[in-house]
Simulated scan of single mutants.
Amino acid sequence: MLTDRRKQLLKHIVEEYVETAQPVGSRALVDKYELPLSSATIRNEMAALEDEGLVAQPHTSAGRVPTDTGYRYYVEALMPEEELTEDLRQTIRHQFHQAARELEEWARLAAAILATRLRNAAVVTTPHSPEPRVRWIELVGVHDYLALLIVVLEEARVLQQTLTLDEPFTQEELTSLARRLNNLVAGKSAAEISEQKIALSPAEVSVRQATSALLKAADELTPEPSFMDGVRDLLKQPEFTEGGRVVDLLGVLEERSLSKAIPVAAGSDMG
């Protein structure tokens, strides 16, 4: 668990590094923030933060830079929250109200709004569960022997597939069949659906198998959608004054993998 002094020190290191993109030394912190501590004490506390994995030292004589874990801790525990004005809230609500209702369009708009407000790059991903689970299914008759299976996932994605039926079904019968199966598959993954040992009609077996297959395909083949805006503002940051770093960034952007580079939550045991 971090002491209050180390929390404050980490906050200064992160903010100073974001502003300058240079390793932060103890003397710079004492002078800029008028800390009532000696440089030697600051160095000892920096070493403790390094032991916690929150900062790193590029080389022996350099100051410290935040690690991914340090940035995440700063965001979750140290960064001050700013309240949006009511006028800005209304503007954002209006923008979303005007946008299309598709989830991906909302994610694209969210990235644009964040980038504009932060004057920096923003990445927004749509909800993606580690293991896709069914929210509900629907069956829509296309022909007497053909139906459209619609599977809505808990993460708000929609999957669909046409099914050939062994016998003709009315729309009322298909709706009733889907209602019965929803009681069995709602909230379940492909593996859990496949493991069920329940007596079903041939049509119900066909729909259940198709649902399980759709979930497996979605898990294996569908990349996590991400939307980005504000790259031009990102390139204005001090760390990108060096050409090599710009090239590395462009490589990440080309692979559309920036969202994967964002660290997960830092350990909660640091307090």
Rank of each mutant, 00 (worst) to 15 (best):
E19M: 05
V247T: 13
A48R: 09
G187N: 12
I113V: 15
S26P: 07
L249K: 08
S206C: 12
G63Y: 00
L258R: 02
Y145A: 05
L215Y: 03
A210I: 04
T67W: 08
H97R: 14
V207W: 00
W106A: 14
I42T: 02
E204Y: 12
S226N: 12
A121W: 06
L165Q: 08
E131Q: 11
E138H: 12
A199C: 03
A47T: 12
T67Y: 12
R256Y: 04
S176L: 14
T126C: 11
A156N: 02
A100M: 01
D87H: 11
E173H: 10
G25S: 12
T41A: 09
S61N: 14
L9N: 01
Q160Y: 09
S212W: 03
L78H: 02
L249C: 13
R245G: 03
E34I: 02
V134R: 00
Q95V: 04
Y73K: 01
F227Q: 07
D248S: 15
E224H: 13
R232G: 09
R208N: 06
P80Y: 09
L2G: 02
V231I: 15
L9K: 03
R89F: 03
G53C: 12
S194N: 05
L84P: 10
A218H: 12
L177I: 07
L109K: 10
D248T: 14
L84F: 13
S189H: 07
Q160C: 02
V142Q: 08
L2N: 04
E154F: 02
D248K: 15
N183C: 10
K11N: 04
G70R: 00
R101G: 15
E195W: 03
V14Y: 00
A122W: 01
S129P: 03
A190C: 03
I150R: 12
V252S: 11
V205F: 14
W136V: 03
L148W: 05
S201A: 14
A115M: 04
L184V: 13
F240L: 07
A178Y: 07
L234V: 04
K11M: 06
P36Q: 11
P168G: 04
A122I: 00
L103M: 13
L103S: 09
A107T: 02
P202A: 08
A266L: 02
R133E: 13
A147M: 03
G244W: 10
E224Y: 01
H94L: 15
A203C: 06
A40D: 09
E105W: 08
Q196K: 08
V246S: 01
P66S: 10
A48L: 11
A261D: 03
L258C: 06
D87C: 04
L214R: 01
E16S: 14
A110G: 08
E104D: 14
